[in-house]
Amino acid sequence: MNGSVRMGRVLGVPLRIHWTVPLLVMLFGYSLGSRTLPAAVPEQSNAVYTVAGLAGALLLLGSLLAHEAAHAITARRKGIEVQSITLWALGGMTEMGRPGAARAVFLVAVSGPLTSMVVGAAAFGAGIGLDAASGWRVPAAVLVWLGWVNGVLGVFNLLPAAPLDGGRVVQALVWWRTGDRDRAERAAARGGQILGILLIALGWISVLRGVFAGLWLAVIGFFLVVVAGAERRRARLAPALRGVRAADAMSGPVETCPEWFTVERCVEDVALRTHHSTLVLSDFEGRPSGLLQLPRLARIPAGQRPTLRVRDVATPLSQCTTCAPDYLLQDVLDKLRPSSGLPILVTDDRHVVGIITARDISRIVQRYGLRRPESQ
């Protein structure tokens, strides 16, 4: 996810923290310390409420991490590659490969909500017991609050709408019942779009009635609509891309430009003569070293063009998506990183043999549509 920073590893999986996480901590810490705790345990100092609110928010962050770690552990046990765990303002996200069976989808999906419910029950029980045994009312109230929040989190995630865990459960059940993975993914994504629209409407109705917390519901709903829409489009693309290899999708020949050229020379000798919107930079040995988009080239001021090298404004090869000609296109697209994305460089023995753009993928989908009408 863009805007996230790597913060070590959890169970061997890279952990990333989005810039919105401090916002999450402050929001829940403020709500807990200024409203919930004073109502539950009155006549305490502001310092006690502030520290307890911050502690509760950090414990909530830890429980979100436990939720995502459960997904990662289950996925690994089922032989699914786990790339990273990211925490952000709306919870967490575990990036992993596509499960190969409906049973794996189901088990990975339910592991997160079950963990949240177990954590919630443990926290709630610990809070009740702490209050009864020692009279430490503030820590007990924090634990009870943590238990309720985790319980709500677990139940909410089981709603039958992708990308929530409940949507994955729906996907697994439809896949198991029909044997059609694409249909299952479309059904789960459709549920996510419907739930998102309902949450947006409910959120705005709440705001109009003076409950400004409804904005949070609207934001969650908007997120569901966007992500579910993307998943539905991907599910509709899958049949057209199945079995297609990179060599079948790529276009060429690829236009190259030496990486030591100045921007001015690149524009005059290469860019103005090409029919492509992307140039591949090559090093002294003729190997690819990066990608240069013509719109990026056009934004460089005229005064910098005689001295600025194209390698200084291009995307390095390490940040580009590359694959071999015999790779399945669907597998390559599933592993795209948000920081790289399209186009995809097709390389053979470290030499570029073609490039795959959004237009190339669209062409494949259109050809598939000519053979078979697109299912809705």
Rank of each mutant, 00 (worst) to 15 (best):
G8E: 07
V226Y: 12
V138P: 09
K78E: 11
A271V: 01
A324W: 02
L345G: 04
H351C: 06
W260Y: 11
L158G: 02
E185P: 00
A140S: 12
I220S: 08
C266M: 09
F212L: 15
G112C: 13
P306G: 12
F124V: 02
W204A: 09
T347R: 04
R242H: 15
G179F: 06
S63L: 04
G151M: 03
E285W: 00
E95R: 13
L199V: 09
S375R: 14
V270H: 00
L336M: 14
R137L: 14
C320G: 10
R273K: 13
L87M: 05
E81S: 14
K335V: 02
Q330H: 06
L198T: 10
R305H: 03
T178D: 14
L153E: 00
P22V: 13
G203H: 02
T357M: 02
V310T: 06
V211Y: 04
A122G: 13
R103D: 00
G369I: 08
P288I: 03
G229K: 03
S277H: 05
L195E: 04
A184L: 07
V82P: 13
L215S: 13
V270R: 00
L24R: 13
L370T: 11
G303A: 13
N157P: 08
L329H: 03
S63N: 01
F28Y: 09
W136R: 10
P160K: 11
F222T: 12
N157H: 05
P258I: 02
A141R: 05
W148C: 15
A201Y: 03
A314N: 02
P316D: 04
L65Q: 07
I200P: 11
G166V: 07
